[in-house]
């Protein structure tokens, strides 16, 4: 089994890259690979514990009808596999007030990305636009 390091930059819901990154992480762990995720800049918001689903007033549906998982729920789902290690860039967290995050993520910085990259089979950098 391999280890893949992934760096993410996009904040939740603004870009398809979040969806694709989650799909890659999920597929990798289903295949038994280990995945390191370095959340940089807006991506530190993916793990915010205070995220709440909402009803949809356009469709007239309730929270329950919508059943819309948040990114922190999805990240929690892949963290449960214990094959994913997740680091939030600490300075990015501080300037966004994003420090209240779900269990399993931890604080770090670019040296962690370098260490992971050197220890991994491959590194996938997903920048923002």
């Amino acid at each position: 089994m391999a280890t893949l390091t992934i760096a993410l930059m996009d904040s939740p819901y603004e870009s398809g890259t979040t969806t694709t990154a989650l799909r890659i992480i999920d597929a990798a762990v289903r295949k038994g690979h280990r995945v390191n995720v370095f959340a940089y800049e807006g991506a530190v918001n993916l793990t915010m514990a205070d995220q709440k689903p909402h009803p949809n007033p356009v469709k007239g549906t309730s929270v329950e009808d919508q059943h819309h998982p948040t990114t922190s729920e999805w990240v929690a789902g892949v963290l449960k596999t214990e094959l994913v290690d997740w680091i939030n860039c600490g300075l990015c967290v501080d300037e966004r007030g994003a420090g209240n995050w779900i269990e399993g993520a931890r604080r770090g910085g670019p040296p962690d990305l370098l260490k992971w990259s050197n220890e991994s089979d491959n590194t996938l950098i997903i920048g923002t636009r």
Binding site: L4, T20, I24, A27, K31, H33, D121, N122, I125
Partner: peptide, 15 residues
């Protein structure tokens, strides 16, 4: 996406 993961974990692949 499964096939993409197979490509991403190839030994020495540049992504």
């Amino acid at each position: 996406i499964d096939s993409l993961v197979d490509l991403l974990v190839q030994d020495g692949a540049k992504i």
